[in-house]
Design a protein around this nucleic acid. Structure first.
Lengths: 193, 193
DNA sequence: GTCTATAAAAGGATAGAC
DNA sequence: GTCTATCCTTTTATAGAC
């Protein structure tokens, strides 16, 4: 996970993997028939570890569902800052690096995105009537991921976290509009009833 | 440009470049001292060609400044659809593939993003008072890029353009709120004067 | 299951004639 | 400026002993 996140898949050699894991060629290949199988193992680990490795640390002490969404983004921000804007989202990086991934790899990338947006969607559901009733929660959850990935990409490229912050700031503004809209509609409904 | 967009930088071999260009090793290396210099040439070509290769075709027949922004996104959508969701934004792909690019490469990636967002920002300026006066146009222009890159990433990963469409749909909703907000403020101002 | 040694291929880049 | 031939390194993966 560490090496693929740091250098990507193609730029990580099997020799790198052996050196980092202190394994010998025979041992690694005994478990993983090919380098791609290591990638599959890594993507499965991310998918299965989203709760323990991402959501739990990101949401420590945060109860409000909408703030949980921004806490998730803040957690990625921390990753960006701590690595001097060289690291972003390992899944996103792999998704763009591998142009024509084999189906098992592509499916796992998609599964990782799905797990991520599903977590956000649960927050949106929890937010209840603070958001408009007619809101497409699926689309908004995806849009949060869109913002994170696009923001991370620009922060990395410019080596400046402000590009991430500005993306999140715009998303925050959008959420404010949505909440304000929900309030207006609630009042109108009350008045009409 | 074609090969790097299709396969990425690392997965494009010099042999690929020679075969596609019908050049011999000696000729290519006579002009480009290394493979990275080819990349630099490609990134310069994108940067210098943004008007002719991107804006002009994307904006054919579109006059409204806000619609020009969405026409730009529609142009990328076309690229996604025409390649069965395998192709996205070549700059974004390279930006995430190259984890620690040499300064000249990184600067050119950043310059490409800058040229792109600058074009969007000009549209925002043209939109005048249809958008709130206190709007951070720089941040919003970047957010359009964020949406495009994040949307393209998910469409490619899921091999389904609907993920791109949903991202753009959310951006559109945000723009509607911004325009509505600008109208409200204009009325309030008129009323006060 | 793990070890060392090595195969087999592909990669970027260069040499030197023309 | 362009040609062919080739060097040298890195890379993924395997062989076969232990």
């Amino acid at each position: 996970m560490e090496l693929f996140a740091l250098k990507g898949f193609n730029s990580t050699s099997v020799a790198d993997l052996l050196s980092r894991t202190q394994l010998n060629s025979g041992s690694l290949y005994h478990v993983f028939p090919s380098k791609q199988d290591v990638l599959i193992g890594v993507l499965e680990a991310y998918r299965d570890g989203i709760e323990a490795m991402l959501l739990t640390p990101a949401w420590g002490g945060v109860a409000d569902p909408i703030e949980k969404i921004f806490a998730l983004l803040a957690y990625y921000r921390m990753g960006v800052v701590m690595t001097d804007c060289t690291y972003g989202c390992p899944i996103g990086s792999l998704a763009l690096e591998l142009h024509e991934p084999d189906p098992p790899v592509r499916d796992l990338l998609a599964a990782n995105f799905k797990a991520w947006t599903a977590a956000v969607e649960r927050c949106l559901d929890e937010a209840g009537d603070r958001l408009p009733a007619n809101l497409d929660r699926d689309a908004l959850a995806q849009f949060v991921l869109t913002t994170m990935e696009g923001g991370v990409m620009q922060a990395r490229t410019h080596r400046d976290v402000v590009y991430f912050d500005r993306a999140v700031g715009q998303l925050r503004a959008y959420f404010e509009f949505l909440q304000s809209d929900a309030r207006t509609k609630r009042r109108a409904k009350k008045g009409a009833s």
